[in-house]
């Protein structure tokens, strides 16, 4: 009930879900710090970033899509396909990373572009189109190989194992830097460009956006392309993390990404939400995993149980929140 009181007095209603997620993250961190020794350190937070950099990047793309009122189920498979293409090209013909990485990014964006174009041109529900994309990309992984392919390229592994030292013994990986840059660029695009405005307007009401003369079709194609690009980049980051390509990488990651976006307060119907919320959503998911591992005795499946409960709470919150604004 405190949140409603805050909403009424000072915080505009649209920031409320983000604020709730932020408070939840802080509360979880404090609770963990009290319960477990060695939890309340900066490195624990940074490790959450390090372990979830790829999910963060994928969730950024997903945020664009969900803000338009769409959904992208293909991201997990595109991530896996990206690791597979990267690993096989470096292992087999021995292509250098600076050729392989741009190629992977182009393939991911291309897949997104095609799905977006189909969604727009034939006016098909994004759920179906990206479901097809999901099966397609996952299937393509196995045409490359059914086993895990290790990555042994010297430049690639060296970059992957680099530690960037911050002050006072804290460190991060290059993936975190990349993910943060992606978040900042995306936030800038969403809030300061015409494309960003069209994204919000399309999600708010597609009919009215069309009657305002906004390029609804181009916007839709753009968000799936962005999501495809982010998935491919997420795949590259995952191959830094795993140092392998495998068709079974990132199974179910699309659902983690959607969960992070929703927990971050973005409306599944589109039109309302912030990238900061998505970042917090990913951090909350990561922190749940950290807490479970600190607990030691709990099986990792408890992560899923907590995510499930959290999602319920947030969907209910959104329902209450949107019912209140409609009145």
């Amino acid at each position: 009930m405190t949140t409603t009181a805050i909403g009424r007095t000072s915080v505009p209603a649209k920031y409320l879900p983000v604020l709730v997620t932020g408070c939840l993250f802080a509360a979880m961190f404090v609770a963990g710090g009290i319960r477990y020794e060695g939890f309340a350190s900066g490195q624990v937070v940074l490790n959450v970033f390090i372990d979830n950099a790829f999910l963060l990047v994928v969730a950024v793309g997903m945020t664009f899509v969900i803000l338009t009122g769409g959904i992208d189920l293909s991201v997990g498979s595109v991530v896996a396909l990206s690791t597979m293409i990267a690993a096989s090209l470096m292992a087999g013909p021995g292509w250098p990373p600076y050729v392989v990485i741009p190629l992977v990014l182009a393939i991911g964006s291309g897949l997104g572009l095609v799905m977006g174009a189909i969604v727009h041109a034939f006016d098909i529900q994004p759920f179906i189109v990206t479901l097809a994309g999901m099966f397609l990309a996952r299937g393509l992984c196995y045409t490359i190989g059914t086993d895990s392919i290790p990555i042994e390229d010297a430049t690639f592994t060296a970059f992957a194992q680099t530690r960037i030292d911050l002050f006072a013994d804290l460190w991060i990986s290059p993936s975190v830097v990349i993910a943060v840059v992606v978040v900042l660029v995306a936030a800038y695009v969403l809030h300061y460009t015409r494309l960003g405005r069209s994204v919000y307007a399309t999600g708010g009401s597609e009919q009215s956006a069309m009657l305002m003369g906004l390029p609804v079709g181009r916007t839709k194609i753009a968000v799936y392309t962005i999501s495809g690009f982010c998935s491919a980049l997420g795949g590259v980051l995952l191959s830094f993390y795993m140092l392998s390509g495998y068709g079974l990488h990132a199974v179910g990651m699309e659902l983690d990404a959607i969960a992070a976006v929703v927990i971050g307060g973005t409306l599944l119907t589109g039109g309302s939400g912030f990238l900061l919320g998505t970042v917090l959503g990913v951090l909350v998911l990561g922190l749940i995993q950290t807490i479970i591992s600190f607990e030691g005795t709990l099986s990792s499946w408890w992560t899923k149980i907590f995510i499930g409960l959290l999602l319920f709470v947030f969907i209910l919150l959104q329902r209450v929140f949107s019912a209140r604004t409609r009145r």
């Binding site: 649209k14 919000y200 307007a201 708010g204 009401s205 009919q207 009215s208 956006a209 009657l211 409306l267 039109g271 309302s272 604004t325």
Partner: peptide, 9 residues
Amino acid sequence: KRYGLNLIE
């Protein structure tokens, strides 16, 4: 309300 405005903006 339906076609002229983005009510949540």
